[in-house]
Design a protein around this nucleic acid. Structure first.
Length: 427
RNA sequence: GGAGAGGUGGCUGAGUGGUCGAAAGCACCGCACUCGAAAUGCGGCGUGGGUGGAAGCCCACCGUGGGUUCGAAUCCCACCCUCUCCGCCA
């Protein structure tokens, strides 16, 4: 959501920002509506002031038992009432149209976001680790199938495409990954663990920007709840409608939750395997900060996510997304991409975004400094730390041996009850 | 699922048709007192919007949206949310 006053002040900056990310300029329509609306508001307020004054006079006349004067005044107030009704209707109409436009416009990119219209414009910031070109490179579907621990057929019988059943040590490995990530983020990086609702109302989805534009990407229950596509929704909405003391910031929250996505626009993409599922586990990090802190917090968050990949000893690279590849709410986004031997490429496993005050405006999350008048909007950031499903894929593929066994990364040993290799029994 | 209670400013909480944007208390800020602090006293202290060079003036907001009325925090309707009791249940 954008600040109409800021748009009024510098429309060009907004149009340039939207064009930069591949959206159309929108301020001419916005400013025209805004101007009309303010004119309507002014005449509405004049009519309201008339009604108020006359009504008060009626009150006084009645108190003075002057019924004749009261009757006279009641006739007088009629035209004001008509005006109010008409101007209110106009105002509501204009406000609705303005709101529809503003709610559908993406955030403005930060100044250091590179240009580009798709992922080819993204800029690699750094790499960590070295993929081994000679390592075996079966994909996780073959590996898991051969082990008898990953069953897409069973999943499709009960749920259709884009689901999986994991069993035994592979199911345990998934749980170990989630626990490990959560432990690192809470114990080492200062995030507070949260166990949030997975079903939320419209308002929450609007607050983080999934609604109104992206309803088709979500699942909805028959009685109107939405399933969260990421814990970003639940964690960020924790501060909706709140006035936070700046001294208590940054607020750092994390949760390990299932995520549900319809993948409506992705039919045909990543149909094989666990890369793109309707349901997957993810550890999400959310930070609520002041405007001054958010850039530094963003860098910090990226390194919190990178820590997980380093501990798991998985080769990855960090990419700064270009304007055209960023999500709706982001003003700047880093993606972490992990090496997948079967695809001989890096695939997204984390996305860390600074949303500035964009979400905070939508959900009325404000800040107040002790002793100071007034409030301002918080900055919100979110990042995966990491996507557990894809981490499982990455571990399987990067830790396989020629025999199709999967070694367990050292960092996960404490979580695997002494198992250091999956499939040890097959030879 | 059945019955009931309730949603008022950062918080607690009064207000059931008429100068109520709203008592009081807490918190917070300023000043006084004090060597300093505490305590005390005095004053200030909601949000959004319109208009204006500014001081200011005006409008709206008492969960949300409608309605009744000359006039609604107050009456009516719908919805959302919270709580209590009963039933059911992980």
């Amino acid at each position: 959501m954008h600040d109409i006053r800021a748009i009024r002040l510098d429309p060009e900056a907004y149009d340039n920002g939207w064009r930069f990310r591949g959206a159309a300029a929108a301020t001419p329509a916005i400013l025209a509506l805004d101007e009309q609306r303010r004119a309507v508001q002014t005449s509405l307020q004049l009519a309201q002031a008339r009604r108020k004054a006359v009504s008060e006079a009626i009150g006084r006349a009645k108190a003075a038992k002057d019924q004749a004067a009261a009757d006279l005044l009641m006739g007088e107030v009629e035209s004001a009432k008509d005006d109010i009704a008409e101007q209110t209707r106009l105002d509501g109409d204009l406000a609705g149209r303005l709101q529809d436009i503003l709610a559908g416009l993406p955030n403005l990119p930060a100044a250091d976001v590179p240009p580009g219209t798709d992922e080819t414009g993204n800029v690699e910031i750094r790499r960590w680790g070295q993929p081994d070109p000679n390592a075996p490179a079966k994909d996780h579907v073959d590996l898991g199938g051969a082990l008898g621990l990953m069953d897409f057929d069973a999943a499709s019988r009960m749920s259709g495409a884009r689901f999986v059943v994991l069993r035994g040590e592979l199911a345990r490995l998934e749980r170990a990954l989630g626990q490990f990530m959560l432990d690192v983020q809470t114990q080492e990086h200062g995030y507070t663990e949260v166990s949030p609702p997975l079903l939320v109302k419209d308002r929450a989805m609007y607050g983080t920007g999934q609604l109104p534009k992206f309803a088709e990407d979500l699942f909805q229950t028959t009685d109107g709840y939405w399933l969260i596509p990421t814990a970003e929704v639940s964690l960020t909405n924790a501060v909706a409608d709140q006035v936070l003391a700046e001294e208590e910031l940054p607020l750092r929250l994390t949760a390990l939750t299932p995520c549900f996505r319809s993948e409506a626009g992705a039919s045909g993409r990543d149909t094989r395997g666990m890369i793109r599922q309707h349901q997957f586990a993810k550890v999400e990090m959310v930070s609520i900060t002041t405007p001054e802190q958010s850039d530094a917090e963003h860098e910090r968050m990226v390194s919190c996510a990178e820590t997980i990949l380093k501990r798991l000893e998985l080769p990855f690279r960090t990419v700064l997304l270009c304007a055209g590849d960023m999500g709706f709410t982001a003003r700047k986004t880093y993606d972490l991409e992990v090496w997948l031997p079967s695809q001989t490429t890096y695939r997204e496993i984390s996305s860390c975004s600074n949303c500035g005050d964009f979400q905070a405006r939508r959900m009325e999350a404000r800040l107040k400094r002790a002793g100071e008048k007034g409030t301002r909007y918080a900055h919100t950031l979110n990042g995966s730390g990491l996507a557990v499903g894809r981490a499982l894929v990455a571990v399987m593929e990067n830790y396989q041996d020629e025999g199709g066994r999967i070694a367990i990364p050292q960092a996960l040993h404490p979580y695997m009850r002494g198992v250091s290799r999956i499939g040890a029994d097959i030879g």
